[in-house]
Structure formats: structure tokens, C-alpha cells
């Protein structure tokens, strides 16, 4: 069995999701989430949000990605070679974000409104955007995995990060933080709808791209990954938060429920990254003529 079917049929990418690959998955997601939250927090000028996003990227995203490396102590080789690849650039974005973000947080705390603060906010914002974006570019460029070859993927990842950012902002607002609740909720609503649309377009597009892309879609909708798709991405990530978000337009909703909606959104985002990585499949090495 071992050889016969190997690479004749569609083979999943495993290195970046199975087993230790889950670190990479978390890193990829939290990069988007942290970046999104930072951008949203800039909009709300929420120090809390900026602090939390800084922590997410510095600790979780940076930590898991480092932990994922086979030889973490050699990571300096990566950050000294921006010309090589998007992974190197991504690492640099993260590092710069951590540095700029730290300075910005300090400035915002002690010298709010100073020119320096504004400069570092801008720098932090650019880096946050880059952190949210680059993982999508990495996947988009993989020649062998048709499911990922779409310019929509980086957009989807950024959108999803911003959506998560709005979600967390809502939570911050509810916790009494420095965010305007109704604006955050409105942002959530818009992003939820946009996100759902992009996912649908993305799947439709992938379905037409190549037989392998199609396989990935089928795997999403009906295969082993289907529960994650339907429950994680569709139900938890879109339907429930959307229902809660729109209901809150008309009636007062218990804050517990809203928090629940935010949690669902986060899980949905995780599920989305998970499935995108999980169903990414290579074209058969040697194709069986049909």
C-alpha cells in the first residue's frame, strides 16, 4: 500500500498542520488576530487593545512560531535575510512590530499625542497589517497547492484578523475598556458579512481552479474536514455571531451572550485557518489519465 497510491491521488500537505504543525496554525492565526486587533485599536485609540494585540503577537504568535522551528536557536538566520522570502520578511515584521509596538505603548502611556507617538503608531500599524497579511501571501505563492493559489487568500486572512480584532474590541468595551461598544459592534457586523462573502467566493473560485482545488473544496464540504467547516467556520464563525450581532441591532442583549458571540468568532477564525491548512493538497505527482 505504501507506495502504490502515494502521490497518484491528491495528497494533503501535512507538515504545516499535522502534529507539531498545530503550532504553525496557531501562529498563523494569532498573527492575523493580533494584527487585526492592533489596527482596530488604533481606530478606537484603545490602549488596552493595543497592549493585548502586542501581547498576542509577541508572546503567542512569536512563541508558537519559534517553538515550531526545528532549530529555534538559529532563528537569527531568518531575520537577517529579508531578501530571501516572505517567511523571513514575516519574521521581521513580527520583530519590528514588537519593537515599534513596545515603544508606541510606552509613548501612548506617558506622552500621548506627541509626534513620536503618532509616528510609532503609524509604524506599528503598518507592521501589524504586514503581520496579518504575510501568512496569506506565503500560502498564495505555493505552486503545488492549487487551493491556496488565490489573491483572495491574503485578503481573507486580513479580513478575518480584523474581524477578530473587532470581536476582541467588543469584549474590551464590555469589560469596561476604552472602546466604543456600538461602533465595535457595527464593525463586527460589517466584517462578519464581508468575511462570509469572501469565504463563499473563495470556495467557488477554488472549485473552478483545478481538480485538486476542487478536491480540497469537496474535502471541506464533505470529507474529514467537513465538521470543522460546517460547525467551526459556518456555525460558530459566521451564523451564531452574525445572529447575535444583528439581534443586538434591535434588542438589548445580555453581555454574556455577546462575549459568547465573540468567542464563537475567534473559534471560527481558528477553524478557518485550520481548514485552509488542512485541506491544502498537492496535485498528484503523476496523474492517472482519466
Amino acid at each position: 500500500m505504501e507506495t502504490h497510491q502515494w502521490m497518484i491521488n491528491y495528497t494533503r500537505q501535512t507538515e504545516w498542520i499535522d502534529r507539531r504543525g498545530i503550532f504553525l496554525w496557531i501562529a498563523f492565526y494569532t498573527g492575523g488576530l493580533g494584527g487585526g486587533l492592533y489596527l482596530v485599536s488604533l481606530y478606537f485609540n484603545s490602549l488596552w487593545g493595543m497592549l493585548i494585540s502586542w501581547l498576542i503577537i509577541a508572546v503567542i504568535k512569536g512563541g508558537t512560531h519559534l517553538a515550531y522551528l526545528g532549530k529555534p536557536t538559529r532563528f537569527w538566520r531568518i531575520v537577517t535575510r529579508p531578501q530571501t522570502s516572505w517567511l523571513a520578511r514575516g519574521f521581521i515584521f513580527v520583530m519590528l512590530f514588537v519593537i515599534f509596538g513596545a515603544i508606541q505603548l510606552v509613548l501612548t502611556y506617558w506622552q500621548p499625542g506627541s509626534a513620536a507617538e503618532i509616528v510609532f503608531k503609524a509604524l506599528g500599524g503598518i507592521m501589524a497589517f504586514a503581520v496579518a497579511l504575510y501568512t496569506g501571501i506565503i500560502l498564495k505563492n505555493m505552486k503545488g497547492v492549487p487551493f491556496w493559489n488565490s489573491a483572495l487568500l491574503p485578503i481573507l486572512f486580513v479580513l478575518c484578523g480584523i474581524l477578530g480584532g473587532f470581536g476582541l474590541s467588543v469584549a474590551i468595551a464590555l469589560a469596561g475598556g476604552d472602546v466604543n461598544l456600538s461602533a465595535a459592534e457595527m464593525g463586527s457586523r460589517i466584517l462578519l458579512v464581508a468575511n462570509a462573502l469572501v469565504i463563499i467566493i473563495y470556495l467557488l473560485q477554488a472549485d473552478h481552479r483545478e481538480t485538486v482545488g476542487r478536491q480540497s473544496v469537496i474535502e471541506q464540504l464533505r470529507g474529514h474536514s467537513a465538521p470543522i467547516f460546517w460547525i467551526g467556520i459556518v456555525a460558530l464563525g459566521i451564523v451564531i455571531p452574525l445572529t447575535i450581532a444583528f439581534t443586538s441591532l434591535y434588542t438589548e442583549i445580555a453581555s454574556g451572550l455577546i462575549i459568547f458571540g465573540v468567542a464563537c468568532e475567534i473559534i471560527g477564525g481558528l477553524a478557518l485557518r485550520y481548514n485552509v491548512l488542512k485541506v491544502g493538497a498537492y496535485k498528484p505527482l503523476v496523474a492517472k489519465p482519466q
Binding site: 504545516w16 526545528g70 532549530k71 538559529r74 532563528f75 531568518i78 517567511l87 503545488g144 498537492y282
Partner: peptide, 22 residues
């Protein structure tokens, strides 16, 4: 001696010819 084990290349090789030695 230089490889950091990020596995980007493992995923990027469209012919699946690379293996990460875990």
C-alpha cells in the same frame, strides 16, 4: 548547519521531495 527547520520548503516543493527530519 544553516537550516532552521521552518519547513517552508517542504510545503513549497510542488513535487513533495523534501522531508523534515523529526
Amino acid at each position: 548547519d544553516k537550516c532552521v527547520g521552518c519547513r517552508y520548503c517542504v510545503v513549497a516543493c510542488p513535487y513533495q521531495n523534501r522531508t523534515f527530519l523529526s
